[in-house]
């Protein structure tokens, strides 16, 4: 399960490669473990770069603390699985599945999230162009309708979770899905654009006014990233 998860995500592969070079001490611990060791990816912008839409403090905690916790949890789950596997204890290995899903999903989702955001002064905000624009118009009617539907989906999440613009692998059409907690987008869908609707993503700045966060985040969506995911999918 873990290897499938890792193989399908180019961004995550990058993070994994980086880990091998950066953490030689950890690499010595176990050969089989080195290959699956996840690390926290760097952001391609400063923590304060998404202000005033997302505060620097939120970004710093979100990346340095929350995302790091998922990375740590993922490595710990992988380690437990590897150990159990080496002892032939598959019951034990299977019991780690919820932790693997939660922390693996958390790592994957946040990695995709950071990449589909950008400072408003650079690539952030505006509207998609090219084939992505055409596809959004075809499948949602208009960009504005898409935005409204995404915001409705976000506001309707009961508890913690994410909303995603996805491409259906079979039909090639675009759609919206929500996922509870850190459940990753998988199966028939390729994730193109994710928005984190956990309270930690906005609470320090927007408190209970999550609708304001869902409005503001459109100013920092990196449509270049979304378009590139769409074209590769």
């Amino acid at each position: 399960m873990s290897s499938t998860l890792l193989r399908t995500v180019p961004a995550l592969r990058g993070a994994l490669r980086a880990s091998g070079a950066a953490k030689p001490a950890a690499a010595l611990a176990s050969t089989s473990f080195v290959r699956g060791k996840a690390t926290l990816p760097d952001l391609s912008y400063d923590y304060g770069a998404l202000e005033p839409h997302i505060s620097g403090k939120i970004m710093e905690l979100h990346h340095k603390k929350h995302h790091q916790t998922y990375v740590t949890g993922l490595n710990s789950a992988l380690e437990t699985i590897a150990e159990a596997e080496s002892k032939g204890d598959f019951t034990k290995a299977a019991s780690v599945a919820p932790l693997l899903n939660f922390h693996g999903g958390g790592h994957l989702n946040h990695t995709l999230f950071w990449e589909n955001l950008a400072p408003a002064s650079r690539d952030g905000g505006g509207e998609p162009s090219g084939v992505l624009k055409t596809a959004i118009n075809e499948d949602f009617g208009s960009f504005d309708t898409f935005r409204k539907q995404m915001n409705t989906a976000l506001a309707g999440i009961q508890g913690s979770g994410w909303a995603w613009l996805v491409k259906d692998k079979q039909s090639g059409t675009l759609g919206l899905v929500t996922r509870a907690n850190q459940d990753p987008v998988s199966g028939p869908y390729t994730p193109l654009l994710g928005i984190d609707a956990w309270e930690h993503a906005y609470y320090l700045q927007y408190e209970n006014r999550k609708v304001e966060y869902f409005e503001a985040i459109w100013n920092v969506i990196n449509w270049k990233t979304v378009a590139s995911r769409f074209e590769k999918a």
Binding site: G159, S160, W198, E199, Y203, L204, E207, N208
Partner: peptide, 8 residues
């Protein structure tokens, strides 16, 4: 244990 219960 919702984040709103303790985050601030």
């Amino acid at each position: 244990m919702w984040e709103h219960a303790y985050y601030l």
